[in-house]
């Protein structure tokens, strides 16, 4: 499959998106609602590109669009920049305090939004990219959070805005959030230590590390991880720091077989995610 990307002829796998091909070929396209760990959604429209086939040319989101044979794709035309600039100006009006949005806007020459005159400062941080919902659904598999309401009232929340029993307090949503709209707070000193998912109306009990005694994860998370990577919950009773210490000690004495080692070291979803997020941003 051949198409042209900014005038260069490029081969792509059928079904591969413009964004993915562009990244492989060192062409930068800004994104906000895209993350390799989850399926694309097309919500932010920052990644738009211009596609021409024959006489017609149109704007599509590159995170979703798989080019057809002989498409001419351009990633930085004036028409494309106009859409991106407006998207950023609109987001800046919504989330004026979010550093990421301010940086992106500045990169497109926008210092302030023309839409906010007279309005009080907005503390809104969520851009509704939906990454948190998708990571909880697709990666963690818990469906603890979702979009509620329509239009400008759309928001991220739990069912009926109350305690989500599906939530295991893994924090994947907090980590994937590009704007710092979600937080959790641990209360390790309580008699029953808890993790509070601040914006999500949810509290999850924490257990203490079997070695150092630090409250570090929920029983539900243990169960979830132990089931999905098939290791006994007891292996997980120690916090990651203590666990790697003890693994190192055991391994030094008695090197385990490769598969057993891999299984024992099976990364939690959190660390998988963290790794992928770090790769992205570096």
């Amino acid at each position: 499959m051949q198409f042209s990307l900014n005038g260069r002829n490029i081969a792509a796998e059928p079904g591969e998106t413009v964004l993915s091909v562009a990244r492989k070929n060192g062409v930068f396209i800004p994104t906000l609602c895209h993350h390799d760990a989850v399926s694309p959604s097309g919500a932010c429209r920052l990644c738009v590109v211009q596609v021409s086939s024959g006489e017609r040319s149109r704007i599509v989101s590159s995170c979703l669009y798989a080019p057809s044979e002989n498409d001419r794709v351009e990633t930085d035309t004036e028409r494309v920049r106009k859409v991106r600039r407006m998207v950023l100006e609109l987001l800046l009006a919504r989330c004026p305090t979010v550093e990421l949005i301010r940086d992106l806007a500045r990169a497109y020459g926008i210092q302030r939004s023309r839409f906010t005159d007279g309005a009080g400062p907005s503390e809104e941080r969520c851009v509704l990219c939906g990454l948190c919902v998708r990571v909880c659904d697709e990666v963690v598999g818990r469906h603890a959070i979702s979009h509620a309401k329509r239009g400008i009232q759309r928001k991220i929340t739990t069912a009926f805005d109350t305690q989500a029993d599906e939530c295991i307090g893994c924090g994947a949503c907090v980590r994937i959030c590009p704007t710092g709209a979600l937080h959790y707070e641990d209360l390790p000193e309580q008699k029953q230590p808890e993790r509070v998912m601040v914006e999500l109306h949810t509290r999850v009990p924490l257990v203490r590390c079997s070695d150092c005694g630090r409250a570090f994860a929920s029983p539900a998370l243990f169960e979830h991880v132990s089931k999905s990577v098939n290791v006994p919950p007891t292996t997980l009773a120690a916090c990651p720091a203590c666990r790697s210490k003890s693994f190192a000690a055991t391994a030094a004495q008695n090197p385990p077989s490769a598969p057993a080692f891999a299984r024992a070291h099976a990364r939690t979803y959190q660390s998988q995610l963290l790794a992928s997020i770090n790769e992205e941003s570096s």
Binding site: A43, C44, V87, L90, L128, R150, G151, I152, R154
Partner: peptide
Amino acid sequence: LKEESCGKCVPCREGTLRMLET
């Protein structure tokens, strides 16, 4: 249209709001 926007994408969700305000 602002009431009926599903709210998924930025140009429509934020754009109908700002257009209406203007």
